[in-house]
């Protein structure tokens, strides 16, 4: 069975890029456009990994990570967040909130795939 990935980003183009990249590598990808929607989906379905942006309306990525980690169904689900190169504070906050790692924007398809394979397997 293919691995299920959730991508949370308010930018449709980014979501689409992630969906296409992972989708064509055999992953099943679902999308959410902000932290709130992401949270609803994340606790409802068991994902093999979650990729979230940090800077989003409604619920930021950081708040999403904190809220999701407080929920029992988050156990064992790796979260990768998207960050800009310079934003070290956010990186530290997101990691300590329970993310496993990050991808620096902009990234390309190979980088994304490498990162996901790392946490979710092929």
């Amino acid at each position: 069975m293919s691995k299920k990935i959730l991508t949370i980003d308010d930018s449709k183009s980014v979501r689409q890029m992630i969906s296409m990249t992972l989708g064509s590598a055999g992953f099943t990808v679902e999308e959410a456009c902000d932290g709130a929607e992401g949270y609803e989906k994340a606790i409802a379905c068991g994902y093999d990994a979650i990729i979230t942006d940090l800077n989003m309306p409604n619920m930021s990525g950081l708040d999403f990570i904190r809220k999701f980690r407080a929920h029992p169904s988050s156990r064992g689900v790796p979260i990768i967040f998207l960050s800009t190169e310079s934003d070290d504070v956010s990186k530290r906050e997101a990691k300590s909130a329970g993310a496993i790692g990050w991808i620096v924007k902009p990234f390309d398809q190979n980088q994304l795939l490498a990162a996901i394979k790392k946490v979710a397997g092929a």
Binding site: D10, K12, C33, D34, E37, L54, N55, P57, N58, M59, S60, G61, L62, D63, E85, S86, D87, D88, V89, S90, K91, E93, G101, W102, V104
Partner: peptide
């Protein structure tokens, strides 16, 4: 430590913002 460090970079500040216009709701483009 992973990731390059950039001491000159501004701190991020809070990332949740209230009052921002809702964008996509549950619509589909």
């Amino acid at each position: 430590p992973a990731g390059p460090s950039d001491p000159a970079a501004p701190p991020a500040g809070k990332t949740d913002r209230a009052g921002a216009p809702p964008r996509e709701n549950s619509s589909l483009r």
